[in-house]
């Protein structure tokens, strides 16, 4: 009984009432474009430093997700504000509004669009996951990290070296992976700029994906799992340096190259 006659009629119910839907859609399109352009212009200032391909992928994914998200957010905002402003009745309304029911076309179309977006995101994420986890380079430098309340102690078992400072030194453009464990409680080993993060579990050795630092510079490791009193003081420096600087550092920390 309902939903008959769902043909091509997109006209308005009365001739002199503006076509609200068309207006709202135009405002939405314009604002979405403006939003995307604004975001792309501002993104270099919002996105943090990236020093590896992994972290670049993460940053790039953030940009892509936001570009896709701006029209979605704008849709809700535009239709909400349009309704609240244009359809507002000043005093308490005395009569009811027209009961609208969605056309099946709208529901199917909506499901299709959201489903496609979702599928795209899943495929994107799986591809990135595959690249980082499965197709990783061989013979990485292994850095063994032990978390203890509230310090990271760092060893390079392949070189027999132990870091004498609160610092991890890495040679640029060489693959490295971090094997992390803990002596007491859960800690979270996170290097934002390299895009790696793994929990330090007591009694277990957990590994980050293999990452290749690509930009010389100074970065940080922070602890991202609440571990007690000085959790927010638990950090180390990460210095990505040239191969020769790295070699002399290893020797100075008691190791052999």
């Amino acid at each position: 009984m309902s939903s008959t006659n769902l043909g091509e009629n997109v006209g308005s119910p009365t001739p002199d009432e503006p076509n609200h839907l068309r207006r709202a859609l135009i405002i939405w399109a314009v604002l979405s474009v403006v939003g995307i352009v604004l975001f792309l212009a501002l993104s270099p200032y919002i996105l943090p430093t990236s020093a590896s391909a992994l972290s670049d992928t993460a940053n790039y994914t953030l940009v892509l997700l936001t570009v896709l998200a701006v029209p979605v957010g704008m849709f809700v905002a535009v239709f909400l504000f349009y309704s609240m402003i244009v359809f507002r009745v000043k005093e308490r309304p005395t009569e009811d509004a027209v009961p609208l029911k969605p056309r099946p076309g709208l529901q199917i179309g909506w499901m299709g669009i959201t489903g496609l977006l979702c599928l795209f995101l899943v495929i994107w994420g799986m591809v990135a996951f595959y690249q980082e986890a499965v197709a990783s380079p061989s013979a990485p430098i292994v850095v063994r990290v032990t978390g203890q309340q509230w310090l990271w102690t760092i060893e390079y078992p392949q070189y027999g070296a132990t870091s004498q400072e609160q610092a991890i030194e890495l040679p640029v453009n060489r693959p490295v992976k971090f094997d992390v464990t803990s002596k007491d409680v859960l800690h979270g080993f996170a290097i934002r700029a390299l895009g790696v993060r793994v929990d330090a579990n007591p009694g277990e050795m957990s590994s980050t994906p293999v990452v290749i630092p690509s930009v010389i510079g100074r970065y940080t490791v922070v602890c991202v799992e609440l571990c007690g009193l000085y959790h927010s003081y638990m950090w180390s420096e990460v210095d990505v340096v040239s191969q020769s600087t790295f070699d002399s550092w290893i020797v100075s920390q008691g190791g052999h190259v």
Binding site: Q164, Q166, A167, Y233, W235
Partner: peptide
């Protein structure tokens, strides 16, 4: 006795 720096300190001491 282990003395450590706070994050982003300008003069690290360990």
């Amino acid at each position: 006795f282990t003395l450590q720096s706070v994050p982003d300190t300008s003069y690290p001491i360990f």
